[in-house]
Design a protein around this nucleic acid. Sequence first.
DNA 1: ATTTGACCCTGCATGC
DNA 2: TGCATGCAGGGTCAAA
Length: 274
Amino acid sequence: MPELPEVETTRRGIAPHLEGREITEVIVRQTRLRVPVPADLVDRLVGARVLEIRRRAKYLLFSLEGAEAMTLLWHLGMSGSLRIARIGELPKKHDHIDLVLDNGAMLRYHDPRRFGFVDWLAGSVEQDRRLARLGPEPLSAAFDGQRLYSLSRGRRLAVKPFLMDNAVVVGVGNIYAAEALFLAGIDPRRAAGRISAERYDRLAAAAKEVLVAAITQGGTTLRDFVGGTGEPGYFKQRLNVYGRHHQPCRRCGVELRLVTLGQRASVFCACCQT
DNA sequence: ATTTGACCCTGCATGC
DNA sequence: TGCATGCAGGGTCAAA
């Protein structure tokens, strides 16, 4: 699934095709997603105009103007993708939802594992329980080494799952947590509470650096991720550790190790990361 | 309170 | 070739 760079790539790819357009038809082929597709989705979307598509963490927020103002929340889960397709393009397996637009294009949602979902925002961003308690955006000034340092004091959790905690910072998933820790030279198994402020400064900077680089490359395509225009992402070639266990470290040549932390595969270099 | 584990679902790679 | 197993970009919930 998409982590923040993939969701942002999706947003940038689809927004120009949707913003300002009216939704003329909605086709739902599968209602059983992680959250059941809202029963009133079609009725409320048809005839509505897309004002803006924003992103918060790994959620896409569609601001809509119709009979009423409303916001649609779209999460891509592990295997979801949204892309622009031509009207009339035959749906493939796992193409669950289409939003047909008044400009001859449509937005098509594909999600084999169905861990993603679409739902109405409950009130405001501050009120919706899915968004209300999220930590800061990783590319914002609110996310820095000082935040990591202060939140981690006394915690014995390994630093990698700590960095992936959405209350700490959002958008850093398994790929980019591993990559950021490699760039910062920190062992992912180290207890979060036993890392210095100086090293957390480096970790925050490394996380920003790797996320920006991945967005620039259109995200990371592992299996079938495609951005909003159907293009794969090219960051995979730039990965230093994720998915490279038992291969040599690009920096020192030592064989990369694989461990499990927080039930997630974690690859690191025992030589470069301490 | 923090931390761990199970679970949601399908597809794919691997090994027997 | 077929079958079983394990693993995959995330997030939520219950239990330890």
